[in-house]
Structure formats: C-alpha cells, structure tokens
C-alpha cells in the first residue's frame, strides 16, 4: 500500500482512511490518536481518544474529565487493531506520556513521531527508535546551529548564578507541562535541596508528576503575599509570566528561560532574558539526523519547524524526503504562545 494512501493530509490533520482515524487532529473528530498532552496536539471534544494513560490523565487535568466521549489506554508496545490497521505506541521521550505512533497496513509502516527528544529526561520514558518505511519527524530545531548542550551543564549555570547573586530571586521561565518538572528534577539531580517555588499555573500538572513518582522534591506554589520573601529562591513560571505584572513583584529578579531557542543569542536578548538556559524537550539537529537513520526508513516527511534544511539533508543522504505542511501546531518552547493553564 502506498504511504500516501495510509496517511493523508486533511484540514483537521493527518487522517488514516483505512482505519478512519486522525492523529493529533487540530479540530474535533470522531476518532483521535494523540501523541502527547501539549495543547496543540491534544485538543478537547473528540468522539473517542486513544492515548497513553499519562496523556489521557493530562488531558483530563487540562480540559476536565469530559474532554472526550470515550477513551482508551494505549500502553507502550501493545498492538491495537483499528479497521485492519495495526497501531502501536512507542515512547518518544518528549514529556511524560509522550508517544510515537506506528501505523501499519498491508506491508507499509509509518511512524508518526509527534515531538521527541533523545536526551535523558528524569520525568519520562526514553525514546525508542522504531523501524519503519516512512518516518514523520518534527523539525522544530532542524538547523545545524541547534545542538543542545547537556541539560546538566545548563542547570549548573543556573546554580552558579544562584550562588553569585544569593540575594536575587531566580525566575525560570519553563513551559508548564514537561519542561517545568524536568527543570525541577534536574535541579534535584544537581544537589539543589531548597524548596522549589512555582507559579500557580503549573500546580495541578506538577502534582500529577509527583503522583507518578517524578523526583521533584519539595515544591511550593507561590502565594500572592510571598513575592517579596523569595529572595535567593528559584521560582519556576510559565515563560509568559516573565514579562507579566506577576514577575515585577519579586526582589531584583534574574530572568532565566529554559528553551532550545536560547541557543540563539539574538533571540535570547530579544526576549529580555538575562540567563538563557538551553534546555529543550525537542531533538536537536544531530539527534534528528541520527534518529532518521536509526529508523532505517526509506522516506521522511518533515513537519512543523525548519523543514527545508532537514529535507535537504535527507535528500543528500539518498532518502526520499518532503515537507508535510501540517497547520495548527505551535511551539511550546517559544514562550510566546498563550499558556492556557494560566487563565
């Protein structure tokens, strides 16, 4: 079967005609398979949702228990049959519960990788490469200038600044699902033992991570009256809060921002960040290239990000490659997207 007959592009997103389902649809559909809980991939109002247990729980936290009429858990590695199409979820290493979805029918296997990373993350299962004929990859950081340093090194920079400016509050902008908790866990791994403070927007999700056993240590929500008292503490908040009235009340804060975009100095300066931390939940250039080769695919479809460079690279390696213009996916690392938990 031709790959383009197995998954086709529609206004609602990637659609599988033989199985009659969508993957990460951007509007409400009768049947959706969801790779991970970020709001642009996981929307409310579908007829039924197949996703990992963690992703379903995250959707319920964000949208309420009635976010879909019916839901079904997909455990990593289990095979599901939908209209003769074999479905399998593989860990994507992006955030807690994130999965790549393998779709196989009549001898053609496509892996929709959603968003993924290869670097170790103490808050989620590591990426597992899956062999396939067609690999659909993200391209958020698909330029050779994006090579993320080890996250531990960036955390060390944060702690060094914390030692140098012990009287200032270090505000760390980090996306509320995944990044915030990963930064907390990395701080613990680096030996940081003080309580970590967080903006109220990430409270429920952080509680969920704690219930799932994420090693985050003692975490407190910032109360309105606390701002002035948090000199010398580390506070995690949504990136948008860095430029908000909310951040003005802290004592002489150092604005840090944990994102892959912080690799580009002009971009860091533009956002007014004093301490850019290159910590990303997306694969960097080297990891994208290595992953494509590991899947042993013959064809790559490249979506949301810098498609041109990755398509060019894949073609130069003798692979068939084309951009896949999926609309409606944001970039949670950019920090200018609205964080809906904050509302």
């Amino acid at each position: 079967m031709a790959a383009t007959d197995l998954l086709t592009l529609t206004p609602a997103g990637l659609y599988c005609p033989p199985g009659d389902f969508y993957v990460d649809p951007v509007r409400a559909v009768p049947r959706a398979l969801i790779t991970h809980g970020h709001s642009d991939h996981a929307r409310a109002g579908h007829g039924s949702v197949l996703a990992t247990r963690e992703t379903l729980a995250i959707m319920a936290i964000r949208y309420g228990a009635n976010f879909t009429r019916a839901q079904q858990i997909a455990a990593y590695g289990d095979t599901h049959d939908i209209g003769g199409v074999a479905i399998r979820f593989h860990p994507a290493g992006h955030v807690l519960g994130s999965a790549q979805i393998s779709v196989e029918h009549k001898g053609c296997r496509i892996v929709v990788s959603g968003d993924y990373k290869r670097e170790r993350d103490p808050t989620c299962a590591p990426f597992e490469p899956a062999r396939c004929d067609v690999f659909i990859t993200e391209a958020t950081f698909a330029l050779p200038v994006f090579r993320h340093p080890p996250a531990a090194r960036e955390i060390e920079r944060l702690l060094r600044s914390h030692r140098l400016f012990p009287e200032r509050t270090h505000l760390v902008g980090a996306y509320g699902l995944g990044k915030a908790q990963r930064v907390m866990a990395l701080l613990r791994e680096a030996g940081y033992e003080r309580p970590i403070y967080m903006h109220g927007a990430a409270e429920k999700l952080t509680e969920f991570f704690l219930c799932e056993g994420a090693p985050l240590g003692e975490v407190h929500k910032v109360a309105a009256a606390d701002h002035g008292k948090l000199a010398g503490e580390i506070v995690i908040c949504p990136p948008t809060a860095l430029n908000d009235l909310w951040s003005r009340k802290f004592s002489d804060p150092v604005n840090a921002f944990a994102s892959g975009w912080m690799r580009i100095r002009a971009r860091a300066r533009q956002s007014g960040v004093e301490l850019p931390l290159v910590i990303s939940d997306h694969a960097d250039w080297d990891a994208l290239c290595a992953t494509i080769l590991e899947t042993q695919c013959a064809e790559v479809w490249v979506t949301h990000g810098q498609e041109e460079a990755l398509v060019h690279w894949a073609q130069s390696r003798g692979l068939r490659a084309r951009p896949l213009h999926l609309a409606g996916y944001g970039d949670e690392e950019a920090g200018d997207t609205i964080v809906e938990e904050a509302q």
């Binding site: 050779p144 200038v145 994006f146 100095r265 460079a309 690279w313």
Partner: peptide
C-alpha cells in the same frame, strides 16, 4: 566543513557570522 545550503539557511536564521560558525 559544512554543506553550503545548510550554512546559508543557518546564517540567515542566526544573523551573525561568528555565532553561526561557532554553533555549526
């Protein structure tokens, strides 16, 4: 050391020669 097209795309994106070379 690099593919000319990848360099061109990267330089265009970063906007600073020394930084592009350092990163690539």
């Amino acid at each position: 050391r690099t593919d000319p097209m990848l360099f061109a795309l990267s330089y265009d994106y970063v906007g600073d020669l020394a930084e592009t070379v350092a990163l690539m």
